[in-house]
Design a protein around this nucleic acid. Structure first.
Lengths: 244, 244
DNA sequence: GCGACGTTTCGGAAATGGCCGAAGTGTCGG
DNA sequence: CCGACACTTCGGCCATTTCCGAAACGTCGC
């Protein structure tokens, strides 16, 4: 990590650690405050790593421009980079960054009606770092709550005993809980403005849906496509109708 | 876009609602991405309203510069403004904005050691929108957890039955719960990197401490001073030693 | 080794945005 | 009605930043 910033001539002299509180806040915020960088961050929000080239085309800028942006975000601590052959893979440096971005998107979407044809697929279903969001994510969460399998308030979430059985029956592990991470966390959905399911359980549900072939990741995007099988299964298993 | 900002007063014609997702994210983020605006936002984070003049001096810029910044933040939906005589009071437009800022500060403080003489008072005790943060806030939360009065994980918080009795005894209402808001919410403290107590209960605890004269708001700042009475009471009531 | 490719650095043009002096609007107090 | 005050708008200066062409670097496939 240290040698990453050391190798370049583009060293930032003023180390972020000797800044005042508001200056550090501004440095971090300014990273997301540019349209090109914001586009990159949105793509990275699903937690996967992307190459500099993929990010440059996602942002709609030339490769050399993107390179500068990426350096800046690494320098600010938002991104980490891994060299792999002639590619460099960038990813968010921690889930905290994804949560921060989610918080910003909630505010960004708060005052306006989300209309925009380009966003329709995104609003329908997308991945959010390690769990599902959009109407699909909110819908699953809602059905689980309705069925009494989980409780989900803005104070936190919990799996009920009926939920434990339910998840065991369909093949999702809702019992082994790594202690260092929230297991069942509500997460405010910026497009639906209701809670969806995050934490370890949200992670496992999403991966289960991928493994079963119910959803498929759209290339170079956070959008997930719901397969015909998925459409049927979400109705059968969760009682969720997605055609509304 | 160029002529948009040029003509026609200071009204922004291009309404934020017709922006694409990442542009809106960038607009919101850019508000916090300037040192002057970041300073203002930090001051506003305790939820109180401040006049344009107070905010301009907090940011260290001239009144006319601040005016522009404030317009921009109102336009982006981060702030609301209320006219009162010849003053204009600005405040965060919603608790969601405070949460967003808190998330950004967590990331900003994540990679670095918080050292800086100016921040010592802030790290000791401050208000965070409607509850206490800093060593005081974290300490109170820790003592309440240790005593078994509340549980506090990253999934959420809860008041135990012993906690209900405890709060009743010292004079804090921990029973009537407005349904629309989290009652006992954990909130990651950026300076201590541990949880403190937010939500309705955090709100009531802070106001109780103010009313009892245990703490006092430092003028034009989020810093709170702990009075001699408070020092004694925090030890007697919570078993909290603040001189460490 | 060679060329193709992904990525970065350099350099300079252009746009953006912050900042303040000066002037304008609106409110309060006498 | 007047001046004092809080705040905003206007206009221009200046620093920062974004952007891309050109070129360099490192890796991969042949």
């Amino acid at each position: 990590m240290a040698e990453v910033s050391a190798l370049a001539g583009r060293r930032s002299e003023v180390h972020i650690s000797c800044m005042t509180g508001s200056a550090k806040l501004a440095t971090v915020a300014a990273c997301a405050g540019d349209p090109a960088r914001a586009s990159m961050l949105q793509l990275l929000m699903d937690g996967r790593a992307f190459t500099a080239g993929e990010l440059s085309s996602a942002a709609g800028v030339a490769a050399q421009t993107a390179s500068g942006h990426l350096f800046r975000m690494v320098d600010a601590g938002l991104l980490t980079v891994a060299n792999q052959g002639r590619h460099r893979y960038y990813r968010l440096s921690s889930p905290l960054v994804a949560q921060m971005l989610e918080g910003m998107m909630v505010v960004a979407a708060a005052n306006v009606v989300m209309t925009g044809p380009g966003n329709e697929a995104m609003r329908k279903a997308r991945s959010c770092y390690d769990h599902l969001a959009g109407r699909l994510g909110v819908g699953i969460a809602q059905r689980l709550v309705d069925a009494g399998h989980v409780t989900l308030t803005d104070q936190g979430g919990e799996v009920t005993s009926s939920g434990t059985m339910f998840f065991r029956r369909i093949g999702i592990d809702a019992e082994t809980t790594p202690s260092h991470r929230a297991f069942c966390r509500p997460c405010l959905d910026w497009s639906e403005r209701r809670y969806h399911l995050a934490g370890v359980l949200g992670d496992r549900i999403m991966h289960f849906c991928f493994d079963e072939g119910w959803i498929r990741q759209k290339p170079k995007s956070r959008v997930v496509d719901i397969t015909p099988l998925g459409t049927r299964k979400f109705r059968e298993v969760f009682g969720l109708r997605l055609d509304i």
